[in-house]
Design a protein around this nucleic acid. Structure first.
Lengths: 362, 362
DNA sequence: CCTCAGGCCGTAAACGTTTTCGGCGCGCTG
DNA sequence: CAGCGCGCCGAAAACGTTTACGGCCTGAGG
């Protein structure tokens, strides 16, 4: 409410001096500085961010978009978790976060880059976005950090899990444990991690020289309801997979329900493994075997690389982190021993299925 | 990047005319307007929000704070859900959302109202905040809407569930069904809905002339882990409640796990009821009986009242909605029939417990 | 032909800062 | 005593808009 001008008038100095005092410039005497600070304090002065931005072209604001989709947006626990970490980390550098609401209505004539420029954010966070067309964002010429997928360009960093590798290793491990019949529930393929995990799945299957049954790889949004529906369809078929791998813990939790309702047991009849290791993974029954993403680390690193780009605007050394994951085996998967795997033999009941996919066909 | 001045120079008019054309003012001829619009288009012009804000003192931004606590912040599904709705609704009015990061560090010397004024948001959304001291926010003199708790003041609206009533009705209903031994897991009492629900619980117990066993009312943050720990402690005791009422579905899901691990069955041995009706309620086993909050409606209404306050700044008729809830009975609670309630008799094993609470002692 | 209304547009102030440039006055050195 | 440096501060421009005010010009009515 009160301005720098009012302070100046009251102290009897010029606005320039007030500004200098407030910003800890050296060339103002100790006594006038203290007088100014006292008056500013008692007038409850706070600078106007818009005015500051206008002249310094710095907003101390980083923008973020969310997908409106339930499975990929704010409502997914993974997103909420790393976002919380990111917020705390970037907050301690003095930044706030501008959440660009999605405009579905023809209210505004602005596109996405226009809105970025309009608000003149100092940086941009990309997370959980299936919207595609993110390349156009690079034309906005603002530092960008992407979580969970990598885009390259000028002043663009990223931090992701090694999704492909994680999934590939998972099927190797599972194969070693005797699993042969795999189902896979992938997420929306427009979102990069979903695609990478699917590719990892195919790669793993190929490496083990195993056959992918196309009717067992199905789409399920990163959502419990979708996971439920998809596995319900799968286990209604003539044959059943031994394990259902899911691209998200949410999907896996839905799968658990479908299996349970069918009167089957996890992991005795069907195993389930998820992805992310969300908080709920240890709460459901049976506890989810899952591949853990380092969520805290991802949030922290993202804040770090974005901050470094924002504070050193000209330097062009973006960082790209791809972090290792960790397989957390819990109860939804059978243990190492193979004695109760007797049903699985070398004779694959669907081995000659003509639709069988190899990895390179994808 | 390009400014109004450049457009003016290129078209050969003054900046005032450009501004008028861009803002659809009537007093500019059709031909100059179309010329201006065309040039603006091809120069990829977008106005600078800071400059606009400086002169109009309107930012088209609503601020929101989140609790850093896991149970009450962004990571709670309830918060994420209504926030998503709110965002979409307020977004269609042209607003974006400024997420004030919490500064735990001594980085900035600004308090909370200072930061609000600094950013000069047009409105404020309060949700899931246990931070107390929200009264001071009213001194910021900005329209405020609170979700899930009611604060009163000038230009302050609110939308909440009828928490007290909901919980009271719940124990009445449960009592009618034969339940006698109640446990209650309240949330952090600093957050209003937790307190209201607790009061409703006591009121219901009092109305039914039932005894509250103090060792069965325990604190649990709105989190699964806390619900697990709290019920684990409760069922380890010498006696066991028949039903555990939880102030949140998260807590209830944790309770489910603790009961399961103790080798007990839900609802045969112990019933569980939650609050919120989050997405996971129908995914866990057994499906949660819970009292549903009208999340979509809450998000929509909050956006509505905030928008009306922001667009009619002077009018002083804040709206306070308190919405009815709905009891959704599913599997975690026994059905109407009382034949299997034989264990519950008029003789209360703890009836003479000296620590027994009445409602008015709280 | 004169006047007046009204459509269209330009000038300039204003919003609240930051920052450059320069100036005053003091003390020190030669 | 002259000159110089330096600490401290003010004047003013600049950032990109909006908007009040006033002026010109055209056309219509008397």
């Amino acid at each position: 409410m009160s301005t720098i001008k009012e302070i100046a008038a009251r102290v009897g100095v010029s606005v320039a001096t007030v500004s200098r005092a407030l910003n800890n410039y050296p060339d103002v005497s100790a006594k006038t500085r203290s007088r100014i600070l006292k008056v500013a304090e008692e007038m409850r002065y706070y600078p106007n961010a818009s005015a500051q931005n206008l002249v310094t072209s710095k907003t101390f604001t980083v923008g973020v978009f969310f997908s409106p989709a339930d499975g990929s947006g704010l409502r997914h626990p993974f997103v909420g978790h790393v976002l919380t970490i990111f917020s705390a980390e970037i907050g301690r550098q003095g930044y706030d976060i501008l959440w660009f609401t999605n405009r579905k209505t023809p209210f505004d004539h602005y596109g996405i880059i226009e809105r970025i420029q309009h608000r003149s954010v100092d940086g941009l966070l990309l997370i959980g976005q299936p919207e595609g067309a993110w390349e156009e964002i690079l034309s906005a010429d603002v530092p960008v950090v992407a979580i969970d997928f990598v885009i390259s360009g000028h002043r663009v960093g990223s931090v992701t899990s090694d999704n492909r590798r994680a999934m590939q290793d998972l099927v190797l491990t599972l194969t070693e444990q005797g699993y042969r019949q795999f189902a896979y529930l992938h997420g929306p393929l427009a979102v990069p991690p979903a695609m990478e995990r699917l590719q990892g799945f195919y790669a793993g299957m190929a490496a083990c020289q195993m056959i992918v049954h196309p009717e067992w790889v199905a789409f399920a949004d990163f959502t419990m309801a979708d996971g439920y529906a998809a596995t319900k369809a799968i286990i209604a078929g003539p044959n059943r997979p031994e394990v259902i791998c899911c691209a998200s813990d949410m999907t896996a939790i839905g799968a658990l329900k479908a299996i349970r309702e069918a009167g089957l047991l996890v992991p005795q009849d069907i195993s389930v493994v998820g992805f992310d290791d969300v908080e709920a993974a240890v709460q459901v029954f049976p506890n989810l075997t899952t591949v853990r993403q380092p969520k805290e680390q991802m949030g922290r690193l993202a804040a770090e690389v974005l901050y470094s780009m924002m504070s050193a605007p000209s330097r062009d050394t973006p960082h790209h982190y791809v972090l290792p994951t960790e397989l957390i085996v819990r109860q939804s998967t059978r243990s190492q021993s193979a004695e109760n795997m007797s049903r699985v033999g070398p004779s694959d009941p669907m081995a000659d299925s003509p639709q069988a996919l190899k990895f390179d066909t994808i």
